[in-house]
């Protein structure tokens, strides 16, 4: 911020009133970012959120705007000035959460892959079960993309965000492991993915911050997951403590290395999915085998890429 005085103001001036797909998507989401917080129930807060998101989309068109940025930015605005919120968003998108919000949320999928790998290392009993249920991929994406803000009560999630800015992605992975660990028994008893998602969703809904002095903010996620059983409250500081005690052996350098490895896997699997769905869409009676069609797909893809396009 100090090395770029006036940069944000200038961006805001340049981006105001310019229309793009990003601004349209931002506009649609402004009231759906942190609607439960009074700061975003009036035009003042909404306008600040609009300016920061629009300015960022203008600064970095390759990312533009991605849902989840709206939720994270809302919280940044609550704890700093508008300009500070902007620079924190820059740090998030371009350094701390690399590629999280780009066109295929590759970065978040990469860290999710790391999470699966760590589950195998730290919680082997659970790992196989999770794999069977396919749970990790379905539930944890939002944990990463919104730093738990969309799944935990506000007062609790901000404590995690705080630790995250201090220690980086390690904290998110650590807490994610602690959440699985805390629910081990129940998860092992689940018969399908939906059941496991309900167990975890309900647990996260009831992570509370007893030290919070501000008036409680209603927790929206609970609308979807609350059940009939009386909820068991979990203290966020206890959860964090356990996560440090059990899983803090993770090192930032190791995570970077794992990110590198996972990245190739993720991109390969996205490519495979794309190829499969294209090939599947072709009628069976055209006289080519699946293998031939897949080969053809690759030929078209390479050709398209050499002309600077990718097949859709």
């Amino acid at each position: 911020m100090e090395t770029h005085p006036g940069y944000y103001t200038e961006l805001v001036e340049k981006s105001t009133g310019k229309y793009s797909l990003a601004t349209e998507e931002i506009e649609r989401d402004l009231h759906r970012s942190m609607p439960e917080h009074p700061a975003f129930q009036n035009e003042l807060g909404i306008a600040a959120l609009r300016r920061v998101l629009t300015a960022y989309a203008f600064r970095n068109p390759t990312i533009g705007y991605c849902q989840a940025m709206n939720i994270v930015t809302s919280v940044l605005l609550l704890y700093g000035s508008e300009e500070e919120a902007f620079w924190l968003l820059v740090a998030l998108c371009e350094r701390m959460l690399p590629d999280y919000y780009n066109t295929r949320v590759v970065g978040a999928l990469v860290d999710q892959g790391i999470f699966e790998e760590l589950t195998r290392d730290f919680l082997p009993q659970l790992s196989e079960k999770m794999q069977d249920l396919g749970v990790i991929s379905s539930i944890s994406l939002s944990w990463f993309l919104t730093l738990f803000l969309s799944v935990m009560p506000f007062e609790s999630a901000v404590v995690i965000v705080d630790c995250f800015f201090y220690e980086g992605i390690k904290v998110i992975l650590q807490v994610a492991l602690a959440v699985l660990d805390a629910n081990m028994e129940q998860l092992l008893g689940c018969s399908d993915e939906g059941e496991a998602m309900t167990v975890l969703g309900r647990y996260l809904d009831n992570v509370v911050n007893k030290q919070s002095v501000s008036p409680p903010i209603p927790h929206l996620h609970a609308l979807l997951t609350s059940g009939d059983d009386p909820p068991v409250e979990v203290d966020i500081f206890e959860l964090l403590k356990v996560s440090y005690e059990k899983f803090s052996s993770l090192r930032a350098e190791d995570i970077e290395q794992m990110r590198f490895k996972q990245r190739l896997k993720v991109i390969q699997s996205l490519e495979d999915t794309a190829k499969r769905s294209v090939v599947r869409a072709i009628p069976v009676d055209i006289g080519f085998s699946i293998e031939e069609l897949e080969d053809l797909y690759m030929v078209f893809k390479v050709t398209a890429q050499s002309q600077g396009r990718t097949p859709s």
């Binding site: 759906r32 609607p35 989840a68 939720i71 939002s142």
Partner: peptide, 21 residues
Amino acid sequence: SRFTRNEFSHDSRTTIGVEFS
């Protein structure tokens, strides 16, 4: 949320990834 909980919220949050009920 209307079907599973009989609830409606004017400003519900954007869904990130996948939700379940």
